[in-house]
């Protein structure tokens, strides 16, 4: 669930609008077009969706570098029980065009 929600939030970002390439879970989002402004937007949306607050030490580019990295951070912040989400199944891909923009 967590992973799907994260994929949806990421692919709905304005930075990825109108693009049709495939975002893998390990795709570097910055290389795929994520801007600093987009990363800030992403942070706010993730906090709202999961009821979490990213602490200062996680407010870095690396935290939001890929869907995998985001999933690990969210799992950590949700505390315990998130171990499975830390290592999402490899090979997961999300077509940006499907994000319903």
């Amino acid at each position: 669930m967590t992973l799907e929600t994260i994929r949806t939030i990421v692919t709905s970002l304005g930075d990825f609008s109108g693009r049709s390439e495939v975002l893998r879970d390990d795709t570097n989002l910055y290389k795929a077009g994520l801007t600093s402004f987009g990363a800030a937007e992403l942070m706010v949306e993730l906090e709202a969706a999961f009821g979490i607050e990213f602490p200062r030490r996680l407010l870095t580019r690396a935290t939001f570098e890929s869907i995998t990295a985001i999933t690990a951070a969210v799992a950590e912040l949700q505390g315990g029980g998130g171990d499975q989400a830390v290592q999402p199944a490899s090979g997961g891909t999300t077509l940006i065009a499907e994000a319903g923009r």
Partner: peptide, 14 residues
Amino acid sequence: GRPGELMANGQRSQ
């Protein structure tokens, strides 16, 4: 704000 901190960090690392 806090999103701003992330942006500031991004600006520095780039």
